[in-house]
Amino acid sequence: MNWEWVTGHLPLIGQLLGEHVFLSVLPVVIGLAVSLPLGIVCSRYPALYGPVLLLTSVLYAVPSLALFVFLLGVTGLHTTTVVIPLALYTLSVLVRNVVDGMRSVPDAVRDAAVGMGFGPLRRLVQVELPIAVPLIMAGTRVATVSNISMVSIGALLGFGGLGQLFTTYGIQLNFFLTAILTGVVLTVALAVAADTIIVGIQRLLTPWAPRGAGR
């Protein structure tokens, strides 16, 4: 481990870390924004859920590198080349969790809400979505962590945040161990930090959940 290299390249490492955060968080935000309405619609109209699930499963099976490369032909070399595939992966994880979350609302609770005079929109916003939060957040955790891991693959195209430490500073510097290790350790640390933050947000949003729920 060459600590001098690390201390000498702190600004670079910081910049790559920032890029990594941006490239992995933006897709989560986009994925959430799309999968929430999509999941809600799918839970209301189960006939729609089958096809959507099939489509997202297929999407998930496409290798990320392939998607990156495929988009390269469409968008050119650009951050969207990395963001769009990751947003699609996030979507395919989250739709399932949103639907499961909506289905986790007990029938008795839904029945009581209707019986007390909740209209459909109010019931969705005040009753169903809050109860679905633990499962939606569980999906968000999985998606965020896997995004952080996958961003590195973008490095093969030149947009990989910390992944650059494997390619530009690893392979091209004749498998320079310090840069590679720094990249691996920081990526895992970033994922653990992001996961902890999401769990914290979930605790804040769901003070009502019995401990141990929503892993």
Binding site: I153, G163, V184
Partner: peptide, 8 residues
Amino acid sequence: RALPTVGV
């Protein structure tokens, strides 16, 4: 799960 496969 967060391990970057390329890095590994």
